[in-house]
């Protein structure tokens, strides 16, 4: 794979929440992201709905089109098939859950059009 995989998605990785609490990546819940963003002075949680999933430039990549936030800004990102996103109320999800499980040992659901993912934006932008 030509693109380095982020190490923090590996099962067992230790994640620090905004209040200092430590959790394993596989134990994170929707509330952990919401509460961390609530006490962050710079970051805000947005809801990003998956609008389209298309093939990427390389066979192991996909282009995901999101509708971001209340303004429904259209944003495309190209990621590896196994790249996990956190879906509200569901947890880690990727375009190829089998690959994510194989590479990261992280249990994943299949990311589908209509799923609402946790994303971040900056506070105070007007």
């Amino acid at each position: 794979s030509p693109v380095a995989l982020p190490p923090f998605f590996m099962r067992g990785s230790i994640i620090q929440l905004a209040d200092g609490e430590l959790k394993r990546v596989e134990d994170l819940k929707t509330e952990d992201f919401i509460q961390s963003a609530e006490i962050s002075s710079e970051l805000k949680i947005d809801s990003s709905t998956v609008e389209r999933i298309d093939n990427g430039q390389s066979p192991n990549a996909v282009v995901i089109q999101f509708s971001v936030g209340e303004l429904k800004a259209q944003v495309c990102v190209e990621v590896l098939l196994e790249y996990p996103f956190f879906v509200f109320g569901q947890g880690w999800s990727s375009c190829c859950p089998d690959r994510t499980t194989q590479l990261f040992e992280l249990s994943c659901a299949k990311l589908c059009v209509g799923d609402v993912c946790v994303s971040l934006t900056l506070r105070g932008l007007r």
Partner: peptide, 19 residues
């Protein structure tokens, strides 16, 4: 053991003007 901040796990998508 490395510790990663929670915000590394979430994509930073285009800023919106909502608040």
């Amino acid at each position: 053991v490395p510790v990663f901040p929670w915000h590394s796990l979430v994509p930073f998508l285009a800023p919106t003007q909502s608040d």
